[in-house]
Design a protein around this nucleic acid. Structure first.
Length: 684
RNA sequence: GCAGGCGUAGCUCAGUUGGAUAGAGCGUCUGACUUCGAAUCAGAAGGUCGCAGGUUCGAGCCCUGCCGCCUGUACCA
């Protein structure tokens, strides 16, 4: 029996009682937590609701407190319930039998649940999807960390998940860097390869491209970063772009090398943070395998788009958009195919989305991109039908998801909405819910952070709350730079605290601490909060941070290291025998009673909320809830740790209780951190 | 104009489908280390939840109207 089951049992009792006593059916039944643990373990505000329903039904006005009194006896019957109190204007507060529940909770957890792997509906999560033309910055990392954590949440909740990273290898951003190599650096593919081979770890290929991309931005604008692109350069860009899209020519070959190398660098960055993928879906393959043409047919057949013969959009295929009315300045219809016959980005996105949902009727070919150290294989799409047989590895089936989550920043909400509607219109049976825009706000730079980066600001910018990062302007904090800085800071701390450790262990620990700091920093804000990046805050290891949570978990481990097996065994068997030993049960109840006992008890209750939090995070798609919960568990444990000595505790029963609670905390805290993508080192 | 988001302590942010005395962290001030590790803990100060109405037993949360900020609203990708 878990706490969730117990809650359900109590809810059922209340429903039955409401029906029998008042003749009223409750469709919704809320459970709260009392503001203080002294007020009970669960609170039902149901009496207020009942008073309303009874009044509606009979016209008779009832006092919520009187109603509560009538329900009280029904709940007190339950074995796990010690007593029930009526509080305030009519809250029903339930107090559990603490000793009894402790022995239930302290039992080793049963593993294994849910149906077999392939029977579960598949959820698709697309995240990261960085333009492969430069290094990743912290804004990209927010995307990846949010996506990766959500994947872990879904998996923890028992879902089957497929993780995709979309590679826009034929877009203008790649074209821009290609122009930089060809026209600014005057390099051909062989020279680029030679350069790449010479680049060091401190300044890798994606860093080189980062700087080159900025130069191209200036080149386009004749040296003025905020100027317009000159017509001659625009022509250059468009020619290169077309060559890349067409494929099978030297420019496309060069572009493919550049894009692929950047993807490799970005994947390396992400792996430092524990982020991995199942499939890289490349735009070039979507193009060359004619996904769009198929989608176009489907959209025409279903009447989702229509051909305009007159007006401003004459010659275009448009998708009517009735939700907002157009004004003189702004159109209400979205153009999918331009009058010159080319498809817009939105059109291509609809095709890809249809494939993800298994509704396109076409598939990619696949190749192995890399194999992670633990054997997990990352696949990449290809047009080469033979690639897979050459790979000689079993491939999972890709695509065909029931729900698709696209982790894309909130500025894309308009086009994302159109994609979702377009898809839903083509295949009405799957509905709008199948496409979820997992949106988040950007990471911007605080004015202070800009100054630290040595970026000059205009007076206008200085007055703003934050400054948007820009790859084109080279304005941003590179992910690897920040991770390096975090690792250096953590290493200094580790060296101070654990001088006896081997250098490799120190570095490994510092790495785990750095990952914890960065991931937690990006997860503690809710998705629709703009993060104004601040170095001091991001580099902090104190207070509400990842390392704080880690530290609490490390402490639980060090307690067990020092306790010795016998003592732990003794504690385990004492709690196991509770059901048969009335005297021991009485003693445990005493330990858990009173002010000190309540502190221990409320910590134990908090550990039991993890499953509910996971379920809630899956539903709300909000990883910040889990981050907040994890911090609060770590904080509550830290307090418990200071208030209760375990190693020196002489009272055997009391020590057994403390050990049992610490054990449960260790398991839950480690699990919660794991879902956040944070590991617990042996020491730190 | 329209659409979406935001406005909560000095600063940065949480706040579940409306519930009990609005919470954290940072910063400030005061305490606690021959320690189960102080990356910690305890205490203090700090609030007209943007403004004004409304709905109800009850509103930071729902409704209406204002004010302010942000982002979208391309035959760019």
């Amino acid at each position: 029996m878990t706490l969730t089951d117990l809650q359900q049992k109590l809810k059922d009792r209340i429903r039955v009682a409401a029906s029998e006593i008042f003749g009223v059916e409750l469709d919704q039944l809320n459970v709260d937590q009392p503001p203080k643990p002294e007020l009970g373990d669960l609170a039902f505000p149901v009496s207020f609701e009942l008073a309303k329903l009874v009044k509606q039904k009979t016209g008779e006005k009832q006092n919520p407190r009187v109603i509560a009194e009538q329900l009280k006896a029904r709940l007190e019957d339950v074995d796990e319930v010690e007593r029930v109190e009526i509080a305030g204007a009519g809250y029903i507060n339930v107090f559990f039998d603490r000793a009894r529940l402790l022995s239930l909770i302290a039992r080793p957890e049963l593993t294994g649940r849910g149906p077999a792997e392939d029977e579960r509906p598949k959820k698709m999560v697309e995240h990261t999807s960085i333009n492969p033309n430069k290094a990743a910055h912290i804004g990209h990392v927010r995307n990846a960390v949010l996506g990766d954590t959500f994947v872990r949440i879904l998996q923890a909740a028992g879902d089957r998940v497929e993780v995709q990273n979309y590679i826009d290898n034929t877009g203008v951003q790649v074209a821009d860097v290609v122009i930089g190599f060809i026209h600014l650096q005057k390099m051909d593919l062989d020279q680029i390869k030679a350069l790449d081979a010479l680049l060091t770890k401190d300044y890798p290929f994606d860093y080189y491209c980062w700087d080159l991309y900025t130069k191209v931005g200036l080149f386009y604008r004749d040296g003025n970063p905020s100027g317009d692109i000159s017509p001659a350069q625009a022509k250059l860009r468009s020619d290169v772009l077309h060559a890349i899209e067409a494929g099978d020519n030297p420019v496309a070959e060069l572009a493919d090398y550049v894009a692929t190398r950047n993807v490799e660098c970005i994947l390396d960055t992400m792996e430092r943070l524990g982020i991995r993928y199942d499939l890289l879906a490349r735009e070039s393959d979507i193009l060359h395998l004619h996904f769009w043409e198929r989608a176009f047919e489907l959209m025409k057949q279903t009447g989702v788009i229509r051909y305009e013969t007159e007006g401003r959009h004459a010659g275009c295929w448009v998708m009517p958009f009735e939700s907002h009315t157009g004004t003189d300045e702004h159109e209400s219809d979205k153009i999918i195919v331009r009058s010159n016959g080319t498809v817009t980005y939105t059109g291509k996105d609809i095709a890809y989305q249809l494939w993800k949902l298994g509704r396109l009727g076409l598939d990619f070919h696949y190749n192995v991109f890399r194999t992670y150290r633990d054997g997990h294989v990352l696949w990449v799409t290809t047009t080469d039908a033979e690639a897979e047989t050459r790979a000689g590895v079993d491939r999972p089936h890709f695509g065909g998801g029931v729900t698709v989550y696209n982790v894309i920043d909130s500025r894309q909400s308009y086009p994302q909405d159109i994609v979702a509607r377009g898809v839903a219109a083509v295949v009405p049976e799957i509905g709008d819910d199948a496409s979820v825009h997992f949106s988040y706000e950007m990471v911007a730079l605080s004015p202070a952070a800009c100054e630290e980066l040595g970026i000059e600001l205009s007076d206008e910018d200085r007055a703003r709350p934050y400054i948007e990062m820009s790859g084109r302007k080279g304005l941003g904090v590179k992910a690897d730079d920040l991770i390096n800085q975090l690792e250096a800071g953590a290493l200094a701390e580790v060296e101070k605290r654990n001088p006896e450790l081997a250098d490799s262990d120190k570095k490994a620990t510092a790495h785990e601490v750095a990952v914890a700091a960065l991931r937690y920093f990006l997860l503690k804000f809710t998705r629709n909060t703009v993060i104004a990046f601040d170095f001091k805050e991001a580099l902090s290891f104190e207070g509400e941070t990842g390392p704080y949570c880690q530290y609490a978990a490390v402490r639980t481990n060090s307690i067990f290291r020092k306790l010795g097996r016998e003592t732990v065994h003794e504690a385990d068997s004492l709690l196991e025998s509770l059901a048969q030993d009335a005297e021991a049960q009485q003693r445990v109840a005493e330990v858990l009673a009173g002010e000190r006992g309540t502190e221990i008890w409320s910590l134990l209750m908090l550990t039991q909320q993890l499953d509910d939090v996971i379920v809630q995070c899956r539903k709300s798609a909000e990883p910040a809830n889990l981050a907040k919960y994890t911090f609060s568990l770590a904080r509550t444990f830290s307090r418990f740790y200071h208030d209760h000595r375990i190693l020196t505790e002489k009272d055997v029963v009391r020590r057994a209780v403390l050990i049992a609670v610490t054990k449960v905390v260790r398991a839950r805290l480690t699990a919660a951190l794991g879902i956040l993508g944070i590991n617990v080192p042996d020491q730190m």
